[in-house]
């Protein structure tokens, strides 16, 4: 199999990921002090998803690697979302 060119991340990029994760962690802690009612879970999930996306795209190189990896990641996310949807199909109509 042919050897692919690999991207080497800079230190700045790693520092950016670290700072972004720390900032989002601080925000997710701060958000718990607000009374958001039903939106509580949604906001917490959105922050967590943003953190996961930063790790996947920059720290784990999805942005720079062969697009096949990005396609598989998206497919996995689609399966995950479908599983969630089907599960809540029960809870929403119970």
């Amino acid at each position: 199999m042919s050897q692919e060119k690999s991207h080497i991340s800079s230190y700045q990029s790693h520092v950016f990921v670290l700072l972004a994760l720390l900032a989002l962690t601080a925000i997710s802690v701060a958000v718990t002090t607000l009374e958001l009612g039903r939106l509580d879970t949604l906001v917490a999930m959105l922050i967590a998803a943003t953190k996961a996306a930063i790790v996947l795209v920059w720290f784990m190189h999805l942005k720079f690697d062969n697009k096949l990896y990005a396609i598989f990641t998206v497919l996995v996310l689609v399966v995950f979302l479908l599983v969630l949807y089907v599960t809540f199909f029960d809870y929403s109509y119970r």
């Binding site: 089907v86 199909f89 809870y91 109509y93 119970r94």
Partner: peptide, 11 residues
């Protein structure tokens, strides 16, 4: 188990 009727149909 007591799932909703719509979920039963879908599954």
């Amino acid at each position: 188990s007591g799932m909703s009727g719509r979920a039963l149909f879908a599954f």
